[in-house]
Design a protein around this nucleic acid. Structure first.
Length: 548
DNA sequence: AATGGAGACAACCGCATGTCG
DNA sequence: ACGACATGCGGTTGTCTCCAT
C-alpha cells in the first residue's frame, strides 16, 4: 500500500468531500486518484473482493463501500479491457440490446473485460448520436433475429420459461443472422455490422427509439422489474374486453409477452401501473411503431436472393396457426398483411383505446388478435374469444419484419421519425393496382382478403423526395387506415377520394407520393406498410407534430 | 481566442435483490 | 417471518476534452 507521502496524500480531499460514513468520517466523493486506486487494489489483493464497506475501515480509504466496489469493478479489476469497443463488440452490444434492452450487466457478461457502465455509456452515447442523426438504433438483421429468437422461444415451448429461456438463448450466442436475411443483406453491407448506411432511413429512427430506455425518447415506459409489472388492466381500456370480445393481455402468458418484449428491449407491457397517470400508453405508441417499424423497416438492405413479397392476406383465409408449412421460408413473408388489415367493424371505436396504441408488445398482441379475428371476423366476431397464441404473435412479428425488408423507399421526413414511423409499417399494397383506400377509421371493410402481389419488380426508391412537412396526424388512421382496399377487388376503394384526402392533409410532396403509391407508381412512399393497422386506432392525442 | 455543443467517460444515487442472523 | 446489511443494477449527473463556429 502506498503511503500518503507517496501518493500525495489523496485520501482526504476536503475540497472534494461530501457525505459521511456515519461515524462522522467524511467520505470522499468524486474522481478517484491514482493513490486511492492503489490503496484499493492493494486491499483487494489482500482481502479479495467483497465486503466493500470494510475497505474504508481497513485501508483508510475514505470512500464508501459502494464507491469502492464500483471503482474496482469498472476500473481496477484485472482483465478489464480498455479502449474503444471493437467492431465485434459493438455488434454484440447492439444485438444484445435488441434482445435484452437495458440490461447492462447481463450484456456485460457477454463482453469479457467490459463493464456494464462502459456498455451503458456507449449505448447512451450511441442513442443520442443516432437519434440526432435520425438513424435507427438497430440494424434490421438484429431486429429480425430478435424476432426469430422470440419465435424460437415460443416454438420450443418456452412460454413459461421466462427469462431463463431467453437467457439460455443468449448463452448460446446464437447471434447468427438468418441467412434468408443476410444472403442479400451482407452482400450490400460492407460497412455492416449494425449500422448500415441507410441514407433514406432516417424516418425509421423514431421507431427505433424508446427501446427500453426512457431516455431515448421519453415516451417509453421505463424498464420495469417484473415484479412491478402488472398485467394490462381493464381499467386502462375500459370495456375493451367485454365489448370487443378481444382478450385482454392477461390472457396471454405474461412471460411470453415479457420475453418478446425483452427481445425488443421493451418493457412489457407498457407502463402497466394502473395508477400511473402518465398517458404513456398512448404517448408511447410512436415508440411502439418504432418497434414494429423502425426495427424492420431498415430501408432496403436486401437485394438478391431474398424473396420479397408484398404482404398477402391469403393467410387470413386459412388457419392462423396453420401456416403453409410446405413453403419455406414459411409464413414469414406472407403474413404481414395481417397488420394492415383493418380491425373488424365494431372494434374501431374501441380500438382507440386498444392496447395497440401503447405501441409496445401489447400492440403486437393486439394486432395478432386482429389477424386472428380477421380470418373469421364479422361472422363470429362477437363470439371471438380466441386468444392470441405466442406463435401467432411471433409469426406476425416475423412476417412484419420480413415485409419490411422489401425494397422500398422511405418517406423520409426531416422530422426524422415521423413518416416512416408511421408509414413504413403500412403495407405497400402492391404495384399491381392495389392501392390504399382512404376511409375513416370508423368505417370498416371486413373480410379482408386482399391478395397482395409478390414484389417482383425492383424499383428505385425515390429517396430524394423527402417531405419536410410537419405532419400533424391528429387522426392518422384517417389516412392510414388499412381499410383502403376494396375487399372484393383488392384494389383501391376510391382512389380519387383517397388521393384528395391525402393531398389535403399532407404536403403536396407527400400527397403526390401518396398518389403515386396509390396508382402503383413506385415512390418513396411505397414502403408504407404495417403501421396502418396500428395507427388505425391511434388516439387523437397522438400527433406527429409532437414528435421530437 | 472565445464560446458553445457534443461526445466520452466517470461517478453517484436510488432502488431492488440477496443473504444472514 | 422479519429486519439489517451487503451487493447489484440501472438511471442520471458531472466533468473533461474535442471541435466547429
Amino acid at each position: 500500500m502506498l503511503s500518503k507521502d507517496q501518493t500525495g496524500s489523496p485520501l482526504i480531499d476536503e475540497s472534494n468531500s461530501s457525505g459521511s460514513a456515519g461515524g462522522g468520517i467524511v467520505l470522499k466523493k468524486g474522481p478517484w486518484t491514482s493513490s486511492e486506486d492503489a490503496i484499493l487494489v492493494e486491499y483487494v489483493k489482500k482481502h479479495g473482493e467483497g465486503n466493500w464497506n470494510a475497505v474504508q475501515k481497513h485501508s483508510g480509504l475514505f470512500r464508501c463501500g459502494k464507491s469502492c466496489r464500483l471503482r474496482w469493478a469498472n476500473h481496477l479489476r484485472p482483465n478489464l479491457k480498455k479502449g474503444a469497443f471493437t467492431a465485434e463488440e459493438e455488434r454484440l452490444i447492439i444485438e444484445l440490446h435488441a434482445k435484452m434492452g437495458n440490461k447492462w450487466a447481463r450484456m456485460a457478461a457477454h463482453l469479457p473485460g467490459r463493464t456494464d457502465n462502459e456498455i451503458k455509456n456507449y449505448w447512451n452515447t450511441r442513442i443520442k448520436r443516432r437519434q440526432r442523426a435520425g438513424l435507427p438504433l438497430y440494424p434490421p438483421e438484429v431486429c429480425f433475429q430478435a424476432l426469430q429468437e422470440s419465435q424460437q422461444i415460443q416454438n420450443t415451448g418456452g412460454i413459461n420459461g421466462g427469462d431463463k429461456v431467453h437467457h439460455d438463448l443468449l448463452q448460446t450466442n446464437s447471434y447468427e443472422i438468418p441467412d434468408v436475411i443476410l444472403d442479400g443483406f451482407k452482400a450490400n453491407q460492407d460497412a455492416f455490422p449494425y449500422v448500415p448506411d441507410f441514407p433514406n432511413l432516417s424516418t425509421t429512427s423514431m421507431l427505433m427509439k424508446g427501446f427500453g430506455s426512457s431516455q431515448y425518447c421519453g415516451f417509453m415506459a421505463p424498464t420495469m422489474h417484473r415484479q412491478k409489472r402488472v398485467r394490462e388492466s381493464p381499467a386502462l381500456f375500459p370495456g375493451y374486453n367485454e365489448r370487443n370480445g378481444i382478450p385482454l393481455f392477461d390472457q396471454i402468458q405474461d412471460d411470453t409477452g415479457d420475453k418478446i418484449a425483452q427481445s425488443f428491449g421493451l418493457p412489457y407491457p407498457f407502463d402497466p401501473d394502473p395508477t400511473n397517470k402518465d398517458p404513456l400508453p398512448f404517448a408511447g405508441m410512436q415508440g411502439s411503431h418504432a418497434l414494429l417499424n423502425g426495427n424492420f423497416s431498415a430501408s432496403k438492405p436486401i437485394s438478391g436472393p431474398v424473396k420479397l413479397e408484398l404482404p398477402s392476406l391469403q393467410y387470413l383465409e386459412t388457419d392462423l396457426g396453420g401456416w403453409d408449412t410446405s413453403s419455406s421460408p414459411p409464413p414469414l413473408l406472407e403474413s404481414v398483411d395481417a397488420f394492415i388489415q383493418s380491425p373488424p367493424s365494431g372494434t374501431v371505436q374501441l380500438e382507440c383505446l386498444s392496447p395497440r396504441n401503447s405501441g409496445l408488445l401489447d400492440a403486437l398482441l393486439h394486432e395478432a388478435k386482429t389477424i386472428s379475428s380477421g380470418k373469421n371476423h364479422l361472422s363470429d366476431k362477437s363470439a371471438n374469444s380466441s386468444t392470441v397464441t405466442p406463435g401467432d404473435l411471433a409469426d406476425s412479428c416475423l412476417n412484419m419484419c420480413e415485409t419490411e425488408w422489401e425494397d422500398y423507399g422511405d418517406p423520409i421526413s426531416p422530422l426524422g421519425h415521423s413518416t416512416t414511423s408511421i408509414f413504413s409499417e403500412c403495407t405497400p399494397i402492391s404495384a399491381s393496382g392495389s392501392s390504399l383506400d382512404e376511409h375513416p377509421p370508423a368505417e370498416t371493410f371486413p373480410g379482408c382478403s386482399v391478395k397482395a402481389e409478390p414484389v417482383d419488380q425492383v424499383w428505385t426508391p425515390d429517396g430524394e423526395k423527402e417531405t419536410s412537412t410537419q405532419l400533424d396526424f391528429s387522426r392518422p388512421d384517417v389516412l392510414l387506415g388499412s381499410n383502403w382496399i376494396d375487399q372484393s377487388t383488392g384494389g383501391p376503394k376510391d382512389q380519387a377520394m383517397m388521393n384528395d384526402a391525402v393531398a389535403s392533409l399532407f404536403s403536396d410532396d407527400f400527397g403526390n407520393n401518396y398518389k403515386n403509391m396509390a396508382s402503383g407508381t413506385p415512390t418513396s412512399n411505397q414502403g408504407w406498410g404495417l403501421g396502418c393497422c396500428a395507427w388505425n386506432n391511434m388516439p387523437p392525442v397522438c400527433q406527429m407534430s409532437e414528435l421530437p
